[in-house]
Amino acid sequence: MSSKDLILSRVRAALGQQASAEPVPRDYRSAGSLEPDVEMLVDRLVDYKAVVHREQDVAAVAARLQPGRLVVPPGIDRSWLPPGVTLAEDEFTADAVLTAATVAVAETGTIVLDGSPDQGHRRLSLLPDLHICVVRTDQVVASVPDALTRLDATRPLTWISGPSATSDIELNRVEGVHGPRNLHVVLLD
């Protein structure tokens, strides 16, 4: 008997002849029941120590942040690059990374990247210490249920809520461990 057969037969024996489970009550606020609130997104991002820029000129914001060696995903909008910026060859040698996003969740202050050409592979937005992320307001959804309906489960997904942090010392939240210690969000209308 393989371990798979063994485990499955144990599970069946454990369940016995029980009646099927009760239907799941879904009385919580479901996808589509709330209007996305951009002000709430900004509030929640700032609360978790991200910096929000509400201006249309991404290149100007990026230039002001003095990104040093900047790495970008292959499908980035080239107009977002500050003139004369030094582009790093890869994320291992970069000081900063500039990406787009797929979805932002207002209620939790979360940005989701899905590895599209303008967001790049997952470690691109992980190794540099500064992450500049561009979010369009039409990508903002109200809640977690809304975000899931917009996402493709088969893509590699990274949900980001503020800069890298830990609560491991006396359960106080401290920003800045292994991921980017600085998260700047440019919100485009």
């Binding site: 979360t110 997904l157 609560s167």
Partner: peptide, 12 residues
Amino acid sequence: GERMNPYTSMWT
């Protein structure tokens, strides 16, 4: 006690 933890990774 956070609205969302800083990072969630999902892969298939």
